[in-house]
Design a protein around this nucleic acid. Structure first.
Lengths: 118, 118
DNA sequence: TATGGATATGCGGATACAGGCATGTCCTGG
DNA sequence: CCAGGACATGCCTGTATCCGCATATCCATA
């Protein structure tokens, strides 16, 4: 099975696109601490169940998240912890940007932990 | 200056969105080794100049890239090396996915260095 | 200041995505 | 087998994005 250079970039962009939505980032942050059912995530991100399901479908399709059935529930979990590393790095980049723009730097430095515990 | 939690997630998603395009990833990879002019990047990614300029505008707007004038040229460079770390992590995630799907694992393991030198 | 190279932007059509609503599917307990 | 809870999906509308083309802007030099 061969994968062309262009295909790799296309897939790489697909993964980035999966992360490129506030609700989906919220989902990922929520999954940091363990697996969650759809209704739990729905409540956590404050979105309707069908919408949450759709976002999870996108994340699942791009391999960011994994689903497993548990009775009538479906439990979702992160399929690769390195994704957390990536979004944390980008969050750090954002913090630097905000700091440069005049946000109190103490607040900027606290950005990541604040979101983690959320 | 205060930044709400929702605003942070929106901005975070904006940065991800800036990375969520094959041409823009190509640009970033090309900038890994130093600054480049628009026409250099245009040739490197095989896109028309106006399109390249547009992609650069998006990257600049989201703070991924920085521009500085140099005569009639404009030299672009990465504004934060941590972005490379983030996309490398995601590339590793992709490599694992492909490996799991039956790509020869040796090829998968070589994915990142192959793209780096490109 | 006029010209030409380098870069940016306005416009338009095609495509893709977000979100709301209704409905379908899957599973368990009775 | 039936009912109901948990989840997924089809349809629709508005909005954003991609890309090509033409054109505008900026800058150095003559």
């Amino acid at each position: 099975m061969k994968v062309t250079r262009e295909e790799v970039f296309r897939l790489h962009a697909q993964i980035c696109k999966a992360l490129a939505d506030p609700s989906r980032l919220l989902i990922i942050v929520e999954l940091r601490h363990g697996s969650r059912t759809v209704s739990e995530l729905s409540r956590a991100i404050g979105a309707a169940q069908p919408l949450t399901s759709r976002h999870l479908g996108i994340l699942r399709e791009k391999g960011v998240v994994r689903a497993e059935r548990d009775g009538t529930f479906v439990r979702y979990s992160l399929s690769d912890r390195r994704i957390l590393g990536a979004i944390d790095l980008l969050l750090d980049v954002l913090a630097s940007q905000l700091a440069r723009q005049g946000l109190r730097s103490s607040a900027a430095r606290r950005l990541r932990p604040a979101l983690r515990s959320a």
